[in-house]
Design a protein around this nucleic acid. Structure first.
Length: 574
DNA sequence: GCCGTTTTCGGCCCGACTGTTTTCAGTCG
């Protein structure tokens, strides 16, 4: 039983307990356990076998026993008992905005409603308005919530959220009196998907900012608007929350709204230990006097901590690391010296080798590995032995033209066939500077088969890097059911590198797997996988994912110089 | 249900906004 399944069960148990009106903290215990299991980075089953379940934060005797039952029997009696008590459709109602556990329970108990469809009918028939605590407006909000839920395509991919936020912040920055404007929330933490978009503006007078925000062309609907907060929904169905506050309180505010919730709860606990109360407005002493923080550094310092990078703020050990002054020195975009995967018109890229090299150079990179697809992948065109030989001539010509300001290395993205063999003969691969291997087809194979293919590729002496190991496309396609732990172990043994593909729909490895790779000492590579010149800008998302996985510059191969990268290849191939 | 250099019991973050209410409950983040 894998981590995601166990996490989902605990999360659903929390929902059911909430509908039943259970003790809030007991519910939170289940949620926290679910989150920590999902973020574990190594197989829960392995932790269970080692008898170390209770070393996981938020797992005590009771939950450890429940995990044990799940691992041994594949079932959990307590879960089945809970599920039998509350209809599935009632639990599903929690997905509707503005419907929480209390209201879901109310609709169910008072009117016998057990599905979202029934709820919609009841709302249309005006049956909800007479319930205690409800009214005509609330009934309308339920209907609107159901519509919003049906429109919602799920969480927003990081790349889309990034673009939208840049577009919205620009006009807000032009409003007179605006001192600062920045994204907060999971976008600032650079999570791979973003739920609602959180924006923060510092200005003495909030109203002109709110007014400008409400009138943006992207706005389809104003959900709520007060003196400190306005929420809108865009035409694309995305919710954007804007908070405006005075500049003197910027530090506490941006800290608070960056989250995560779990990180903030821990921080507030630390504040209480020191006789302080932390809120988005200030740090309050017990006598009621306020400490205003204009910067985040001041907030953390007041709690005895160094500043913690936003990408780490998930309560995955960063607070302990900060207390012990052992936060990692995270990799930064500027640390990258090269990019070890980009494409050209030799396969499915949209620009010439020279154009791509110049684009990479314009972004401060010093080298790049051209990795057009081998033939086996059914993309338009693709390179075989003959094309690679001819491309080599073009590489030399481009390198001459660039006159030492940038170096193109010869590579390929070689297809791992369904049977685990590679799409190009070894002697052809041997002539290249570096070889990137990738699985694109047969992603739906069984776990053992697809894992074996990836490991076979890693063990091929000519392969240096395994690209986007799961092949997922966020929000579009599940990745292969691949045993990442086994792949990482194989890479560690063979001394091969694993890619963090920076494309915002891939981010593959993901943050949790990066963390595990770092623990295992696996060499990582952050690659743009650029298919057009502007795609080199995507590297920021790959670096962010590396940072979320606690990776330092030393963990990532392409922070090294081109000579060091080539030496890394040679010392292994001897 | 978890957790512990103020604790093995009694805590567990804090506030905005809305809609329903005459002081608060529910939801959200």
């Amino acid at each position: 039983m894998d981590n995601r399944t166990v996490a989902a069960i605990f999360s659903e148990m929390a929902d059911i307990l909430a509908i039943q009106g259970e003790n809030y903290h007991r519910i939170m215990a289940y949620r926290r356990a679910a989150e920590n299991i999902a973020a574990l980075g190594r197989p829960l089953e392995e932790v269970w076998r080692a008898g170390e379940l209770e070393t996981i934060p938020g797992i005590g005797k009771t939950l450890a026993a429940k995990i044990d039952e799940l691992m041994r029997t594949g079932r959990l009696q307590a879960y089945e008992k809970l599920k039998a008590q509350v209809p599935e459709g009632v639990v599903a109602m929690l997905q509707i905005p503005d419907v929480g556990p209390r209201k879901a329970a109310l609709f169910w108990k008072e009117l016998g409603i057990t599905s979202i469809d029934e709820l919609e009918k009841a709302a249309r028939a005006g049956k909800l308005r007479d319930l205690p605590g409800m009214g005509v407006r609330s009934e309308q909000k339920v209907l609107e919530g159901i519509q919003a839920l049906r429109r919602r395509t799920g969480r927003i991919p990081l790349g889309v959220a990034w673009e939208l936020v840049q577009a919205v912040l620009l006009p807000l920055r032009e409003v007179p009196g605006v001192v600062q404007a920045a994204p907060a929330g999971s976008l600032r933490r650079m999570r791979e998907t973003v739920g609602d978009l959180d924006l923060l503006v510092a200005a003495e007078d909030p109203e002109p900012v709110m007014a400008r925000f409400r009138e943006l062309p992207q706005v389809a609907e104003v959900l709520l608007s007060g003196p400190t907060k306005t929420s809108i929904r865009t035409h694309d169905g995305f919710q954007v929350d804007l908070r405006v506050l005075e500049p003197a309180r910027w530090g506490t505010a941006i800290q608070y709204f960056t989250g995560s919730k779990a990180h903030n709860i821990r921080l507030r606990g630390l504040a209480l230990d020191r006789g302080l109360s932390l809120s988005e407005y200030a740090i309050k002493r017990e006598d009621g006097t306020e400490i205003l923080c204009a910067t985040e550094e001041e907030v953390y310092a007041a709690l005895g901590l160094p500043w913690i990078p936003p990408e780490l703020r998930e309560d995955r050990g960063e607070i302990e690391a900060a207390l012990e002054r052992r936060l990692p020195d995270l990799i930064e975009l500027a640390d990258l010296q090269g990019d070890l995967q980009f494409h050209t018109t030799w396969s499915d890229g949209h620009a010439s080798l020279l154009e791509m090299a110049e684009a990479a150079r314009a972004r401060g990179l010093k080298y790049g590995l051209v990795t057009d697809h081998s033939r086996g992948l059914g993309v338009a065109r693709g390179v075989g032995p003959e094309e690679l030989r001819r491309q080599r001539a073009e590489i030399e010509e481009v390198n001459r033209k660039l006159g030492g300001t940038f170096r193109v290395l010869a590579g390929v993205e070689v297809e791992v066939r369904a049977d685990g063999s590679l799409d190009l003969p070894d002697e052809v691969l041997a002539e290249l500077d570096l070889v990137v291997a990738a699985v694109h087809s047969g992603l739906r194979q069984g776990r053992e088969q697809v894992t074996a293919r990836a490991i076979a590729a890693i063990r091929n002496p000519h392969v240096d890097i395994l690209a986007h190991p799961t092949g997922r496309l966020i929000g579009r396609r599940e990745g292969a059911d691949i045993d990442i732990e086994a792949v990482l172990q194989a890479a560690a043994e063979a001394g091969k590198a694993i890619e963090i593909n920076a494309h915002p729909l891939r981010l593959d490895l993901n943050d949790v797997h990066v963390r595990r790779a770092v623990e295992l000492g696996v060499t990582l590579v952050v690659n743009s996988d650029a298919h057009r010149p502007e795609d080199f800008d995507l590297l920021r998302f790959g670096v962010a994912t590396a940072r979320r996985g606690w990776a330092t510059g030393a963990d990532v191969l392409n922070t090294r110089s081109v000579e060091e990268v080539l030496a890394w290849v040679r010392q292994r191939n001897r």
